[in-house]
Simulated scan of single mutants.
Amino acid sequence: MSKAAAAQSTSSSLSRFWHKWRFHINILLLLVPLGFMPKYFADASLFRGDSGLGEREVGTVEIGPWSLQLAELRDEAPRPDGPAGYMKSFNAALCDACIEPVKAVYLRVGKPRSLRTAGVIFFGTPYRLGATVPIPLRTQEDADLWITLEGWDGSVHQASIPLKQASPATVAWLKQRGGK
């Protein structure tokens, strides 16, 4: 058998395979993404706010004369974020009476020493604020999550909630790590 005949035989078998199975491969290319659609629509609903502030509502937190609704964005352990360490995302919504007088909302694990160390600042609209808090590796299981509200008049109000109430998944993750 000559080289030309062998090449023609190989190309014809490949051509027959392609013509026989190309329809089935194209159907797979359409069906595989459909398997990911439920998660996509759930995430889109979560980020639009159609399914609430987050996957797990923490509740209303009273901070001085103001209050806010707090929720975990995802009900899961903190995610690694490169050199920044492990991060946990929270969402909040200010009460209707708080929208005008509140200038900034901060969140931190552990008590802040001053307003300069109040933690990460929430961003977004007053109806849906978001913040990603670093979780230090040496965080104790009984740590508190501190919320600081700063008013336009210069007033500062703080409140804390136990981390086990704000994020049980984070406390379980801390127990699993066991001080490593």
Results as ranks from 00 to 15, higher is better:
D75I: 12
V109I: 14
D75A: 13
A84M: 11
D81A: 14
R108E: 08
Q69F: 09
A92H: 07
D75S: 12
Q69N: 10
V109Q: 14
I99E: 15
V105D: 00
G85H: 14
P80M: 07
V105I: 06
Q69L: 13
M87S: 10
E100G: 06
R74W: 10
E76D: 09
L94R: 03
K111Y: 07
G110S: 04
A97F: 10
L68A: 03
R108C: 04
K111S: 07
D75N: 14
K103M: 09
P78E: 00
L73D: 06
K88P: 03
R79D: 05
I99G: 12
L73G: 02
F90T: 00
D75P: 11
P78F: 01
A104P: 09
Y106M: 02
D81V: 09
L70E: 01
A104F: 07
A104M: 08
C95H: 13
F90Y: 07
R108G: 06
P112R: 05
L94E: 03
M87Q: 14
E100S: 08
R74F: 14
P101F: 12
M87A: 11
A97N: 11
K111T: 12
R74D: 04
A77E: 13
A93C: 01
A104H: 15
R74G: 00
G85D: 10
S89Y: 00
P78R: 00
M87C: 08
C95D: 11
A92D: 10
Y86N: 13
D75K: 15
R74M: 05
P80F: 04
L68G: 01
Q69G: 02
V105H: 00
Y106H: 15
N91V: 06
R74A: 04
L94Y: 03
K111H: 15
L73A: 07
C98R: 10
G82D: 06
L70P: 02
